[in-house]
């Protein structure tokens, strides 16, 4: 029996399906594109419009407000290093891609996580889907993204959203399920409705877990946005791919370091800020 034939049939069936979908639901994809570009383009423009020194000053002040001297130093020195590496505008493009993808992931992920925590049926439906999304290798996500959205920023962000969304969903649901049953009972015993309990008891008490999801979502977005440079998302990933193809090791490491610094900055800042605004603290 010839399996090559079978494999070709599967591939062509998938091709047919995606073809059909992209033609039939073109409007939907246009809509998604519009949303992504509607967020990303102004963001990129704004980040590149603001002079670098002003961003650094803001980071220092913000760092001091959220985490005193260590965070202020980290913010100031980290961004100064990026500026010194002459990778400022690439970093801003990457940062805006991260923000766009993370924003959309969280806007979908947190409500979905809430739904999963509240409904056993939704949990049963989404559990395997989430497993699938989480085990899918990052690169594989690029293929359908390119197919439906071509190359450029939009497929990059779409692939990133798929990659970054499962964790905030899971951590939101986990945080809600972990709320002490006695506290929920207290709400019920005083006549609170399900919605009241959700918004006044469960969500505030799940805050830590939800914010861990936010943090992870942003971090995963950053790693995926770099990979998405392969399909033309742009930013720091472009620098890395370019230096790989030109065998410029030094330049590649520089860009890699900037990614690491960006990651550390985003991680520390989101953590400190979420500690700062934690209602249960």
């Amino acid at each position: 029996m010839d399996f090559t034939d079978f494999a070709m049939q599967v591939a062509s069936a998938i091709d047919n399906f995606t073809n059909y979908v992209s033609q039939k639901f073109g409007a939907v994809f246009d809509f998604i594109s519009a949303i992504i570009l509607g967020i990303n383009d102004p963001l990129t423009a704004a980040l590149n419009f603001v002079p670098a020194w002003l961003v650094i000053v803001i980071a220092v002040i913000g760092g001091f407000a959220a985490g005193r001297l260590p965070l202020a130093l980290l913010g100031g020195l980290g961004l100064a290093f990026i500026l010194a590496m002459n990778l400022w505008s690439a970093a801003m493009v990457t940062f805006s891609l991260v923000l766009t993808a993370a924003l959309i992931s969280l806007a979908i992920g947190i409500p979905l996580g809430t739904l999963i925590a509240e409904s056993k049926r939704m949990n049963a439906v989404f559990e395997p889907i989430l497993d699938f999304m989480q085990t899918m290798p990052a690169f594989v996500l690029l293929v359908p993204a390119v197919f439906f959205f071509g190359v450029g920023v939009v497929p990059g962000v779409v692939a990133t959203i798929f990659f970054a969304m499962p964790l905030p969903i899971r951590l939101t649901a986990h945080g809600l399920k972990m709320v002490e049953p006695e506290v929920i009972e207290a709400g019920e015993a005083f006549g609170a409705s399900r919605m009241t309990i959700l918004f006044f008891i469960k969500l505030p008490l799940a805050f830590k877990s939800i914010m861990a999801g936010v943090n992870q979502c942003i971090m995963m977005s950053l790693s995926m946005v770099i990979i998405a440079s392969m399909i033309g998302a742009g930013g720091l990933g472009d620098e890395i791919i370019r230096s790989i193809s030109r065998l410029q090791v030094g330049r590649g490491v520089e860009a890699g370091l900037v990614v690491v610094i960006l990651a550390i900055l985003i991680d520390r800042f989101t953590r400190r800020i979420s500690q700062k605004i934690d209602p249960t603290a």
Binding site: V183, A186, E188, A189, F190, G191, L205
Partner: peptide, 18 residues
């Protein structure tokens, strides 16, 4: 009924920390 007739005190207090 719960808000007008019956109130409850819990073993581990069940206060809202936030």
């Amino acid at each position: 009924i719960r808000s007008s007739k019956i109130s409850m005190v819990f073993q581990h207090f069940a206060l809202l920390p936030h």
